[in-house]
Design a protein around this nucleic acid. Structure first.
Length: 298
DNA sequence: TTGGGTCAAGGAGTC
DNA sequence: GACTCCTTGACCCAA
């Protein structure tokens, strides 16, 4: 069975988890509290909406608690929002919605710049703490390997050594291939020693296959989830024909969906639909899955 | 109320 | 060296 979901935003609902503020705005702690509360309320609304429609995955925007990892954050967010997060996590578990996060391109724990590396770890600790409070054991923090810095083995080594002493982060972390620098086979060189799983993104893989078919890439990546004991996760998107290679289309092309389903070959997987159409694209994929299931029933 | 400029952060590619 | 792109736009200010 394939479960689907979407990232960060719901275009249908007047609810968001992404309300933010400028750095200078952190001085007003009350304003920050109110804004975080709105984001948490938005998350509850989205979780319920998703569950009612059979969408079992949701990627929370990184700014759920904006600037939480910044030294200027004005209060102990884990203490003040802990009860709300625990409640939300309980709701997500009850309704069967799996949560994730995807820190942005600035998060590079393998950077040769020590300040950049440490700031990156702080951000990853924030994401992990959110999932600790939510109590989401199957949650995933998705990250790219970052820069290659003209020395790929050294970059992989720095990444591994930076994260090895961080069990709280590794509990949720998964590594994703990207469309320019790191292939699926290469991210396994970092995820393997860290004992964390790998995520295959179909569009990134098409642009940066490293000599592997999609099926071969999945053969490598899907077993990496066994040690964690949670369902494997992959990313699905289609190319926007009018934009640069790698740009996400509004929806998923049936051919892409069929190719991924074929390569999965019946393996249990969670599919994050990365499309500009967000939940609408995910619902389209879910409907296709439904039709497939019905058609294959005896 | 609206439109445009701006916003924490890194790295790679292009010109 | 400047600019652009990545992403999830959202905020803020001037008009």
């Amino acid at each position: 069975m394939i479960r689907v979901g979407y990232p960060a935003q719901n275009l249908t609902l007047p609810a968001t988890t992404n309300r933010t503020l400028r750095l200078a705005g952190l001085e007003d702690a009350e304003k920050v509290r109110a804004l975080v509360w709105e984001n948490l309320l938005g998350l509850e609304t989205i979780i319920r909406w998703n569950a009612e429609r059979g969408l079992r995955l949701f990627r929370i925007g990184q700014g759920l608690i904006p600037f939480a990892s910044h030294p200027a954050f004005p209060y102990d967010w884990a203490r003040e929002h802990g009860d709300d997060l625990r409640e939300l996590g309980g709701l997500a578990r009850t309704l069967g919605v799996r949560l994730s996060m995807h820190p942005a391109q600035f998060i590079n724990p393998g950077s040769p710049n020590p300040q950049t590396a440490e700031r990156s770890l702080e951000e990853l600790r924030y994401a992990s703490r959110v999932f600790d409070l939510l109590g989401s054991e199957d949650a995933v923090v998705v990250l790219h390997l970052g820069g290659a810095y003209d020395d790929r083995p050294a970059a992989v080594s720095r990444f591994v050594e930076a994260l090895r002493p961080e069990p709280e982060i590794l509990r949720y972390l998964a590594l994703e291939n990207d469309e320019r620098i790191w292939t699926v086979a290469e991210i396994l060189q970092a995820s393997g020693p860290l004992g964390i799983p790998a995520i295959v993104d179909n569009l990134h893989h098409r642009l940066n296959p490293g000599g592997l078919t999609l099926g071969e890439a999945l053969d490598l990546a899907l077993p990496t989830w066994e040690a964690r004991g949670s369902r494997p996760k992959i990313h699905l998107s289609s190319q926007d024909p009018k934009k640069r290679p790698g740009a996400h289309a509004y929806s998923i092309e049936p051919d892409d969906w069929e190719t991924v389903v074929g390569a999965l070959d019946g393996r249990e997987t969670d599919v994050m639909v990365e499309a500009k159409g967000k939940e609408l694209a995910a619902l389209g994929v879910a409907a296709g899955q439904e039709r497939r299931t019905v058609a294959s029933e005896p």
